[in-house]
């Protein structure tokens, strides 16, 4: 009970960089607050009514002073802005070798799928020292995947994919919170992030695995829903082939091109007529009512497994 933490654990590569910036800001805050407080207190005592301090030469204009206290804070904030933007950018771009884990938020739980086929609820197992990219979506309202110890947070939005990445640097169990208010059970939409040694993680994957990877689940769905009858591997079907598609540019009927990223594939399954590939007919029906968010992610993982350009797989577009 009396173990009162005053500062959060730093458990990711990002955490220490964010904290450094935070401490710099704290320094500035303490400096300016002290300046103001000391100024106010000193002047009010020295120039209190009845004090004999000289009031000679009091002015109410001093352009140099005004410029100084406009320009100096401006320079300080712009310096911080540059520092912060660099870090923010890094926090947005995952390393090339990051492993993907898929997360669906729904009122009021987190459903997590590892590409190897492991599924977990409100718990996220990750290996130490390896960059992990989370691919997030929501089944209902907006949620937010927040791991304080890693200093990462990202809104989880229905109808699109967002991503966040981290690289854990410390073994242990950490809080996972939903940070975007999502209704009655918001405060219970919490969980644990467990950082394990990479070999332990492998063991855990193998031990808990259903034996069916996400992409093979996706392949099953692909057959089950009859996708395979039109989207053949050799481009002879009524729909375009999906082999080598992922991350490539696609020419549409309208003459525009889009990159076949996760959002595109998702949209093409749920709303096939929105972006029809050139030379094909808009004959595909929607699968909106038959497929849930978790299955969609399996299908995407399957399409990814058919090859393409991995680097373009960022979900965070717009």
């Amino acid at each position: 009970m009396f173990n009162i933490p005053l500062f959060p654990t730093e458990a990711s590569t990002t955490a220490s960089r964010v904290d450094l910036l935070f401490f710099a800001l704290m320094g500035i805050i303490v400096l300016f607050t002290t300046l103001i407080f000391v100024g106010v207190i000193f002047f009010s005592i020295r120039y209190r009514r009845g004090s004999r301090a000289s009031r000679k030469g009091a002015t109410s204009e001093n352009m140099k002073l005004e410029l100084a206290w406009t320009i100096i804070p401006l320079c300080i904030t712009m310096g911080i802005f540059i520092w912060a933007s660099k870090l923010y950018f890094d926090m947005h771009v995952p390393p090339k070798n990051a492993m993907d884990i898929y997360v669906v938020g729904k009122q009021w739980m987190w459903y997590i799928q590892h590409p190897e086929g492991n599924r977990e609820i409100n718990t996220l197992h990750v290996p130490l020292g390896k960059p992990v990219r989370l691919i997030l979506t929501s089944q209902d309202v907006i949620h937010d995947f927040f791991i304080p110890a890693f200093r990462v947070k990202q809104d989880v939005i229905p109808g699109r994919y967002t991503t966040e990445w981290f690289q854990a640097t410390k073994l242990g169990e950490y809080h996972l919170f939903c940070a975007q208010y999502c209704g009655t059970g918001h405060a219970q939409m919490v969980g644990t992030v467990i950082v394990m040694q990479p070999w332990e993680y492998e063991q855990w994957l193998a031990g808990k695995s259903s034996g069916v990877t996400m992409s093979s689940s996706g392949e099953q769905l692909f057959t089950q829903f009859g996708c395979v009858t039109c989207h053949r591997s050799d481009n002879t079907g009524r729909g375009p082939t999906l082999v080598g598609l992922f991350g490539k540019k696609v020419l549409l009927q309208t003459g525009q091109t889009v990159v076949a990223d996760m959002d595109y594939i998702r949209e093409s399954i749920l709303d096939p007529r929105a972006k029809v590939v050139a030379t094909y007919q808009p004959i595909m029906p929607t699968f909106k009512s038959q497929i849930d968010q978790a299955q969609l992610m399996q299908l995407i993982e399957y399409v990814k497994s058919l090859g393409g350009s991995q680097s373009a797989s960022k979900g965070n577009k717009k």
Binding site: T14, F81, Y88, M91, V152
Partner: peptide, 8 residues
Amino acid sequence: ATLPVDVH
């Protein structure tokens, strides 16, 4: 206003 800290 400092982006990375705001994320946290």
